[in-house]
Nucleic acid binder design. Structure first.
Length: 487
RNA sequence: GUCCCCAUCGUCCAGUGGCCUAGGACCCAGCCCUUUCAAGGCUGUAACGGCGGUUCGAAUCCGCUUGGGGAUACCA
């Protein structure tokens, strides 16, 4: 089913902590839908729960979406014709609609205290009653009538009056016909004057001209509440899309407590490339654009995007494929770009290096580390030996222990062979040729044995990027100094 | 408890009644390449939860069952 053009989609996170990976997951497809149809992608901030607001998290939402290249066309940050885009700034709109529903008899005031509601709930659960829910104690009563009864609160909320025939099915773009439970007399306007999600989402999606109400699967069961409000207000329904829920390895809904990768920032902190992450997320519950390959750009996704291709099963977020994708994206970078990204990453995570020198060395080393990197985070331990002063190079214990017994002779021969090279002719090729002639042919050693001490002298480690290229980056003098030092 | 959603290799997807002795990607294993580690190439292991239907024929349709998930808030 292809919806009409152009689409206006929206992502609506709550600023209640570090941005959630689910926000990016939804944003990818929202944006794809909007771009494909020439529409707009809107960011709305759902800050209706005053108690849960976290300072700075709204800014983090902007930052992470920008980092991913998923910046909205309209948002509190950049503005737009349908603002304000922050729900806390739209209170009059919600109050007006609530009053309208009150006047029409579709909603009523409720003065019950939270304590009474909690008791009621406890009783219902204990009695094994099939349906739990509000008992309509306040329905039909005036304030003064209700005040005489126990469990009275001075500040009322507004509840919706669910009729006997509420809509219990709707059409979902990726699921088709969906059935859902009969709603309770849900609170739509809280005692503090803020709306609940149910009122706010309907009012905002309508007023902002949103064509696709995209959200997580957990909202299916409350959709009848929204359908009811649309009906009462006589507003046209948007397309509903309930995306499958991202899962932990144990299949539960992905959460920050269980899974560090539930935090969007985690990927950035750990050296993942945003384009790789977008690629990875676009593969969850959604088939790859190209047969036989999982590598695809966002533009390719846009070109072939279709809500109907979604799978309805909640995918486990398994980082194995992301690691591979990230490596593939790193390998595709130019040396210069990789150097720039690595140094920028070090700057972000506070790795203390001289930026200019580091950029020069890392760009030089790019060809030899590129195919060894999974994330940008892997770069530092791979090239730190190229950045450290010769006399500060640490020889790791396991490398020292693995040194063959002929080490002194090998190092002596290596120093002699490399020292004999002309200063302007010291390259990876000449160094390799000289060492092979001297150590492998001359001393009759296996390459594996012959180059072991040399590698340790140069890098301080048993495992390092390619040896001869590393020596070329260090240069003849520093190479000789390190060989001498270990000897 | 009640309601809703979901069900193919370890993971992510393909498969919409015959092209399926179920295909791809990642992971894993083996081999090749090789100065270490990678990358790359080749090969391989591995799944339709179960039971009943419908049909000439079912991974695909239906029912039941089992399993997982979600919702049942003045949180979203």
């Amino acid at each position: 089913m292809t919806p009409p053009l152009p689409a206006r989609t929206r992502v609506a996170p709550s600023p209640t902590g570090d941005p959630h990976v689910g926000t990016a997951y939804q944003a990818i497809f929202d944006l794809a839908c909007a771009r494909q149809t020439g529409g707009q992608f809107v960011l709305r901030i759902e800050d209706t729960d005053q108690a849960r607001q976290v300072e700075g998290s709204e800014q983090q939402i902007y930052d992470t979406l920008a980092w991913l290249g998923l910046s909205p066309d309209e948002s509190p940050e950049v503005g737009g014709p349908a603002g304000p885009y922050r729900q806390s700034e739209r209170l009059p709109e919600y109050a007006a609609v609530a009053q309208q529903l009150l006047d029409a008899g579709h909603a009523y005031h409720c003065w019950c205290t939270p304590e009474r509601l909690a008791d009621l709930r406890k009783q219902q659960e204990a009695s094994k009653q099939a349906d739990t829910g509000y008992d309509r104690r306040c329905y039909g009563l005036t304030r003064d009538e209700r005040a005489k009864l126990p469990g009275f609160s001075e500040k009322p909320v507004v509840r919706m009056l669910v009729p006997d025939d509420p809509p219990l099915t709707f059409t979902d773009l990726i699921r088709g016909e969906v059935a859902c439970p009969r709603p309770d007399d849900q609170v739509i306007l809280k005692a503090d004057g803020f709306p609940t999600y149910h009122l706010a989402v309907v009012v905002d999606d309508h007023l902002m001209g949103i064509t696709h109400t995209v959200r997580g699967e957990e909202w299916i069961s409350s959709t009848p509440k929204h359908l009811l409000i649309y009906r009462w207000l006589g507003w046209d329904l948007p397309f509903f899309v309930h995306m499958p829920l991202l899962r932990n390895a144990d299949k539960s809904k992905i959460a920050k407590r269980k899974n560090p990768a539930a935090r969007l920032m985690w990927f950035r902190e750990n050296g993942y490339l945003p384009e790789a992450l977008v690629n990875f997320l676009s593969l969850l519950a959604y088939p790859p654009v190209h047969e036989g390959s999982d590598i695809q750009s966002f533009d390719e996704l846009v070109a072939s995007f279709d809500w109907g291709k979604f799978s309805t099963t909640g995918p486990v977020v398994d980082l194995g494929k992301l690691d591979w994708l990230n490596g593939a994206y790193i390998r595709a970078l130019t040396d210069d770009e990789l150097g720039a990204r690595i140094v920028a990453y070090w700057d972000e995570v506070g790795q203390p290096v001289d930026a200019v020198e580091a950029r020069r060395v890392v760009t030089q080393a790019a060809p030899i580390i590129k195919e060894r990197l999974t994330t940008l985070r892997d770069a530092y331990p791979m090239v730190d030996f190229l950045l450290v002063d010769d006399d500060l190079l640490v020889i790791e214990d396991d490398a020292r222990e693995a040194l063959p017994e002929q080490t002194p002779q090998i190092l002596a021969a290596a120093i002699k062979a490399l020292g004999a090279l002309p200063g302007d002719g010291f390259t990876a090729e000449t160094a390799e040729a000289a060492l092979r002639a001297s150590l492998v042919d001359g001393l009759g050693l296996k390459p594996r044995v012959a180059f072991n001490p040399v590698r340790t002298a140069i890098s301080g480690r048993k495992v390092s990027p390619p040896l001869f290229e590393s020596m070329a980056i260090l240069g003849q003098a520093r190479t000789l100094a390190r060989l001498q030092s270990l000897k």
